[in-house]
Design a binder for these strands. Structure first.
Lengths: 344, 344
DNA sequence: TTGAAAGCGCTAACAG
DNA sequence: CTGTTAGCGCTTTCAA
């Protein structure tokens, strides 16, 4: 059932039917009611492609998911972000277009999206320091919102981010308060903006207690399970005193890390404490709330919602300035922590 | 730059330029070369919406992601599947359209997708037993491929699935071979088709040794971390002999499970063994290969590739019969396993 | 081997 | 308040 057929059934012109359907004021309310009723009865849905060809608006938003060319890893927070954004799109009548693109091909992907006219705007995932995609998009005049930030970008841009620095600072403080002094930090790749912010938080917490960060206890890699395993294993075996606590930048990395700790015959929360990027820990509540982590699954979802809403705002009111939204890290209860073991 | 402008620059008609670009044979090769060259120089990209309006093909494929109305969980394997499918779409010139839809609204979502003409086909995620979406799609005459299967569906349909039954049978056998007899099984929700198949595998392995499955050791819920924690905690505390091994249907569930084991003061691989849905375990290789699991991240990605390719086949050659592709579970090395502790 | 013209399904001036 | 007409950018007869 298309507009032409529908208007014929009603004995009206396509124009009138279109206007009635799209809420234009100049339509007789009785006519509008008839039209609306018929549309419902015949399950009429306007053809999106025709509509957007006529209006020049795609009613779609693109998400370009960078895949690391090295490990081909898809960041798992991505599904939650998408879920949040999807809610908003569904409410607002937008479609969501996904492109999975190796980071080498990203620039071309953006240009194509633009030229093919398939989207009205774009969400940028996984920003790096001074990410070249942001000026590129500005140049292409494609509305965009960044999930995260890109230190070193000159012109202002819209973003939604979680306070990574603060979260890791608090996590480090938690371990310091428990008496830990040798706190290993398994960070993500420090070409990523979020990873640098996290390191700053870690270092700030140490500095506030007059402690220097020890390079032997700091790593930065893509957040795989193998990375967690190898790093923890090496650090637990290295000459000099062992770390008594680990701070891991990702749940996946922490899985490997825990395995290494198990293998070393150490007990979690007694010989070694682990704090990680985690979620759903509220079931562990034992009365004491400890500030832990940044991007719990539910907060990532919320970030998705906000980013989508901000982008739609940008698209529909292009003159509004850039939206900048720093979400505070969420408080979560838990972690396999305990006091630092006493030295003997 | 659109077709009209491009053809004017070339002093040719739109028709000829279009034909040259789309590989029609009746074009003079010299002309074609000129056209191709100009298209490249001017970065010409045909407008997708105009093209699909004219051809009647959307050149897009829909993925409808069901969100459980209860927990709003997005299955994390989803990102990997999408990544695999995305590769294929990129190669074949299709766009990927995502809708995140609460399972209550799924039927409407499919109908709309169909009526709005935004996709040429659909991938069905997370099939349930006798999933109503499959006959619905058949009725709508929308090409579709299911990721997984739906026991109880009458008419044949296309699917790509991993051999869940076999994988869980082998995992159970592994634990049985190590001497375990009280093997707890934390399954996913058994309204999902894959979960039922996994249970069958578990039961079959026990039955083959003349063991009866013990209902007190079996659970079925949505695969959250809290579920793993609560279940393991309860089972380790229950009257009667403890389980000496756990089989968990998801990596996330296993995280909670491990935490409960830690809390109980038990040692992994000594007091208790855990086998789970895992990946990247090859870094643990110690010489012995043990058959473990189904949907490692890389095999899910491969499933995404195959499903996408199958769907494109269905779209482009509608008369080919349904594609059915049972992937064997992948062999992975690892697991926190050890011999069953002797009773005292 | 090329081009003119119609049309995909819709919206948006412009008239009335 | 309603209708006529043109056109969004492309493909596809049909004719030359």
């Amino acid at each position: 059932m298309n507009l032409k057929e529908l208007s014929q059934k009603l004995g009206l012109s396509q124009t009138t039917v279109s206007r009635a359907l799209n809420g234009y004021p100049e339509v007789n309310e009785a006519t509008r009611a008839r039209v609306l009723d018929a549309a419902r009865r015949y399950h009429y849905r306007p053809n999106t492609r025709a509509k957007s060809l006529a209006t020049g608006r795609a009613m779609a938003i693109g998400h370009i998911i960078p895949i690391s060319t090295r490990h081909e890893i898809v960041n798992p927070v991505f599904s939650d972000f998408i879920a949040g954004a999807g809610e908003v799109y569904a409410r607002s009548g937008y479609d969501m277009l996904l492109s999975v693109v190796s980071d080498a091909a990203e620039e071309r992907a953006y240009r194509e999206l633009r030229a093919k006219g398939s989207v009205d705007g774009v969400i940028v995932h996984g920003p790096k320091l001074a990410d070249p995609r942001i000026p590129l998009l500005a140049g292409l005049d494609l509305p965009h919102v960044v999930h995260g930030r890109a230190t070193g970008t000159d012109a202002p841009y819209s973003w939604v981010d979680v306070n990574n620095r603060r979260a890791f600072q608090r996590a480090t403080e938690l371990l310091l308060d428990l008496g830990h002094r040798r706190i290993a930090f398994l960070n993500g790749l420090e070409t990523m903006d979020f990873a640098v912010r996290r390191r700053h938080g870690y270092e700030a917490a140490l500095a506030a207690r007059g402690l220097a960060a020890d390079p032997a206890l700091m790593r930065s890699e893509e957040m795989t399970e193998a990375y967690g395993y190898r790093s923890a294993r090496a650090m637990l075996a290295q000459a000099g005193p062992r770390p008594t606590a680990f701070l891991a930048s990702s749940l996946i990395t922490a899985i490997g890390l825990r395995r290494a700790i198990e293998e070393a015959g150490l007990r979690m929360g007694r010989d070694v404490s682990v704090v990680t990027h985690d979620d759903e820990l509220s079931y562990l509540a034992n009365g004491e709330e400890v500030p832990i982590f940044t991007a719990t699954r539910s907060s990532v979802r919320e970030a998705g919602r906000r980013a989508a809403a901000a982008l739609i705002g940008l698209i529909e009111a292009p003159d509004s300035g850039p939206a900048q939204d720093l979400m505070e890290a969420q408080l979560v209860i838990g972690g396999s922590t305990g006091p630092a073991p006493t030295e003997d």
